[in-house]
Write a protein that binds this DNA or RNA. Sequence first.
DNA 1: TTCGTGCAGTTGTATGTACAAGTATGGCGA
DNA 2: TCGCCATACTTGTACATACAACTGCACGAA
Lengths: 369, 369
Amino acid sequence: MTRGGMPKYLQLKHEILSWLHRGERKPHELLPSENELAARFGMSRQTVRQTLAELEQEGYLYRQRGKGTFVAPPHFAKAGGAAGTAVGMVTTYISDYIFPHIVRGAEAVLRARGMGLYLSSTDNDKDRERESLRMMLDRGVGGLIIEPTKSAEGNPNLDQYLAFRYRGVPFVMINARYPELDCPCLVVDDEAGAYAATEHVIRLGHRRIAGFFKTDDLQGTRRMKGYLRAMKRYGVPILPDGVVTYASHNKWTYPVGKAGQLLRREERPTAIVCYNDELAVALLRAVREAGLAVPDDLSIVGFDDSTLAQAAEVKLTTLTHPKTEMGERAAEMLLRLMADPTYEAEDVIYTPELVVRESTRAVGVGARG
Amino acid sequence: MTRGGMPKYLQLKHEILSWLHRGERKPHELLPSENELAARFGMSRQTVRQTLAELEQEGYLYRQRGKGTFVAPPHFAKAGGAAGTAVGMVTTYISDYIFPHIVRGAEAVLRARGMGLYLSSTDNDKDRERESLRMMLDRGVGGLIIEPTKSAEGNPNLDQYLAFRYRGVPFVMINARYPELDCPCLVVDDEAGAYAATEHVIRLGHRRIAGFFKTDDLQGTRRMKGYLRAMKRYGVPILPDGVVTYASHNKWTYPVGKAGQLLRREERPTAIVCYNDELAVALLRAVREAGLAVPDDLSIVGFDDSTLAQAAEVKLTTLTHPKTEMGERAAEMLLRLMADPTYEAEDVIYTPELVVRESTRAVGVGARG
DNA sequence: TTCGTGCAGTTGTATGTACAAGTATGGCGA
DNA sequence: TCGCCATACTTGTACATACAACTGCACGAA
């Protein structure tokens, strides 16, 4: 096949482009090495490099030193605006607790692939979530990582999500999933985690075990479920008012007050299973103010193994949360979905592990001091 | 001008970009020929061509066979699509310490104004900073909030910043400023803060006062300066090895080890002024392992009033950092600069306030218990 | 004057070599 | 079994050379 007058490197360029356009090479597939192409097409490696450089510049290929040359996913090829080169991330909080770690993991992966990251937070407010989604749509992000807002309370922004779907913009969810939306998600097995936490204190001999759960998102309800299941499984009776549920808006006041009441009762609990470390740390204070000590008088189990768990006055027994890794895998999954819309992503479920520190102890064992 | 390790063709690229950024070459002006550049910079024509190819690709130059290579007018330099609707933010860390709060403040203001936020982190690595800036440039952000990376160690990415200026994209800096860049910045008065911290322990009667400072960024050097000034002002002698400097890469090991040595000496310090809360918390552990107690045997002052300060086993005496407010004002300032390029923004300098908690005590007063 | 030719100078195409730097792998030894 | 190292293979950088294609200009011929 000769092409009149056309420079060799352009001939090769068209040849390679025809591979892509005919779908003979799938995204992220390895192309022949420069030397092999040179040999096969009877040209020097430098000429091949010129071809590949142009194709890379135009977004059709990407190259990695030491590994090879690969087919770029289609959206790289458009290369026009920011359309296919950035993804959005919508989380409940940006600055608090474990969320910065999740963001960080996603950001690292995206940066390594030259993708931009649009960030927005909802402060766990559904109107803000709506605003954020709208903004992402306007910006034309190529994909979306979302942490649902108040996932236990329905999804008034369903129409926004469907708008993304209509445009073919894939999204993945982290920490929870709106049940009415069918999309891949990454979650920790909250129920198993809370079960393990409860089992832990039961095995330490505790019987009066309270549970505090934030129930406006699904994580909280699942964790409560795990707690209840363990209590039932081991035949431990639930205390009167021993299960306290609260919501985001009163998380700094209500559970602390409730704990104060519980701890001043005659039949006070000897252990508390907490929704997360944030609450556990808040309760530490309530416990001290009630004149009790952790873990001597009361064992406390947190959840998420946040930095708080180790920085707290009493280092918390808690359950791990993948945090950074979850962000990384969410980003990787999303990139793959963006590259290949037919890819059937499977949910990733992390099983949290119990980390025993200083906030739990067997009943009746260590008196104070 | 040598640039360590950098490939020759990139050196030439920066050289030529600096011509453009400094306005030495006007649009449509003829550049020296490839052969002349090769001769002048002592490289082969092929290498020069590689440089020019990249610069042409990026829109800085255009070439005409038989005529020569010319400076492209600025509007050729690809103006982004998101110019008026998004800003970029480049911080050292995303997930740790006070940075999430700064990001949050900026994000809140930007979201209220319907602006998107591109986020990128550098992990305090200058190469990553370069990548991040490059990405922001590619995305065509309309403005930039930057926290300089290792600000005490010079600015190898100056050309990137000048590229933003060349395109008329305003930027503001937070926490520090590269001295060679004239731009508005928001900082805390680190020197005054460290002075106040040192003065505080001096007034509590301490005389053997060590100082630990991270000196690869300007904040650390300024804080050290404040410490030294207070010591001199009050005529307190510096202990031998009493001033410990460290860097980001060894922040988790070196200062802790040094503290262990210091505390085991005969004439051990009775107070330590720390670069920040993160270090103070790390030292708390070292102190305990040395068999000493805070504040009974040793007073410690942190800096930044982070969440750590209150969550730590001993609540830290520390100095405030505006965090969220700094992020908000940085965003507001940037938005104003974007709206009105003639606006002369003034630096914002926050004076940190001393917060006395439990980690400092007058010498010889409170024995243990 | 006008046209054309040749020439010097420019970028474009093409090939050759060599070594640097990064990745993956298999084998070897502790 | 684990970790280390040598090795083979990849792309990245740099040099040298040659010729093609094109521009602009000077010079000479019609």
